[in-house]
Amino acid sequence: KNAAKIVNEALNQGITLFVSDNKLKYKTNRDSIPSELLEEWKQHKQELIDFLTQLES
Rank of each mutant, 00 (worst) to 15 (best):
N2M: 12
N2F: 09
A3G: 04
A3K: 01
A3L: 07
A4M: 12
A4P: 06
A4W: 14
A4H: 07
K5W: 14
K5A: 15
I6Y: 04
I6N: 01
V7E: 01
N8F: 13
E9R: 10
E9T: 07
A10L: 03
A10E: 00
L11Q: 08
N12S: 15
N12G: 10
Q13V: 07
Q13H: 13
Q13G: 04
Q13F: 13
G14V: 01
G14T: 02
I15R: 01
L17W: 02
L17C: 02
F18C: 06
V19W: 04
V19K: 02
V19D: 00
S20N: 07
S20A: 12
S20M: 11
S20Q: 15
D21T: 04
N22S: 08
N22M: 08
K23C: 12
K23G: 06
L24W: 01
K25F: 15
K25G: 08
K25V: 11
Y26N: 01
K27Q: 07
K27Y: 10
K27L: 08
K27A: 09
K27F: 10
K27V: 09
T28F: 04
T28Y: 04
T28H: 06
N29R: 08
N29A: 11
N29I: 08
R30T: 05
R30A: 07
R30Q: 06
D31V: 11
D31C: 09
D31A: 12
S32N: 12
S32A: 09
S32F: 12
S32P: 09
I33V: 12
I33T: 03
P34W: 02
P34S: 06
S35V: 14
S35G: 10
E36Q: 11
L37A: 04
L38M: 12
L38D: 03
E39T: 08
E39G: 06
W41Y: 04
W41R: 00
W41A: 02
W41P: 00
W41F: 08
K42A: 14
K42P: 01
K42H: 11
H44S: 05
H44K: 05
H44G: 02
H44Q: 05
H44N: 10
H44M: 08
K45G: 08
Q46V: 08
Q46W: 09
E47K: 06
E47T: 06
E47N: 05
L48D: 00
L48F: 01
L48N: 00
L48A: 00
L48Q: 00
I49N: 01
I49E: 03
D50S: 10
D50Q: 11
D50R: 10
D50N: 10
F51N: 01
F51E: 02
F51W: 09
L52M: 03
L52Y: 02
L52R: 00
T53Y: 07
T53A: 06
T53C: 08
T53P: 02
Q54P: 07
Q54W: 12
Q54R: 14
L55S: 12
L55Y: 12
L55N: 12
E56C: 11
E56D: 12
E56P: 13
S57D: 15
S57P: 14
